[in-house]
Design a protein around this nucleic acid. Sequence first.
DNA 1: ACGACCTTAACGTCGCGTTAGGGTTA
DNA 2: GTAACCCTAACGCGACGTTAAGGTCG
Lengths: 126, 126
Amino acid sequence: MSFDRRAVYVISVAAQLAGVHPQTLRNYERTGLLDPSRTSGGSRRFSDADLERLRRIQELTNEGVNLEGVKRILELEVRLARAEEAVRELESQHQRDVADAHRQYRRDLVPVSNTVAIFVDRQRRT
Amino acid sequence: MSFDRRAVYVISVAAQLAGVHPQTLRNYERTGLLDPSRTSGGSRRFSDADLERLRRIQELTNEGVNLEGVKRILELEVRLARAEEAVRELESQHQRDVADAHRQYRRDLVPVSNTVAIFVDRQRRT
DNA sequence: ACGACCTTAACGTCGCGTTAGGGTTA
DNA sequence: GTAACCCTAACGCGACGTTAAGGTCG
């Protein structure tokens, strides 16, 4: 569930872990689908995040989507996840804010209809 | 902005309007990308909605996305639009509900701290 | 009865995964 | 020094737009 953010896999290992030809990974980088970091010597190093993305790329290409399609789909999936997260966030915030509004009054308010006399001291108001 | 929902275009006209070979439209239907209605005689009839979708398909394929990718992208775009609409809807509903909560109390409640005496008639409560 | 529709199938191009060849890093 | 990395380029297969051939609707 939690990833090591460091880029640790050389291309052959990354390729093996994803069941892909190493040259395929170079192709993906060239077309902008992946962006692994590099050592000072110029070798690629893939992170867990790169691998996760790579596996999603594999799923999509195996299902017949070409690279241009994969690129757009991944972007749309990110945007969709953000929007759905925003919906969940708004829904819970809605609950809280409405409940707070009620609580604020229930704490120290009394319905006028339930009182026989009220004397308001407006001077004391801030 | 508003479309005629009726399917009125024969395949040659639809193809011409979208700048596409008629046979391409038959391919799109076969792969499930379009679903024009049919006359009793078996001829295809395309609606404005079909044409709108067709133009979006053209945009994507011209940009290098293959048909499987187009199919998924169109679906994701619908889901994204729905989610973003839900966000807007929740935001305005939030405003309304919180304001309503306040209004409900302001109409007939008075802060306890601003009164010098309250006599509650609990018998009258429903 | 002729033109536009229908279907299935063949052709051609292009994207992309793989392989090959030659040079550099560890 | 050898094994794995780097790059560019060529090969091969499959997807897809187009064309072709033959039959049916209006």
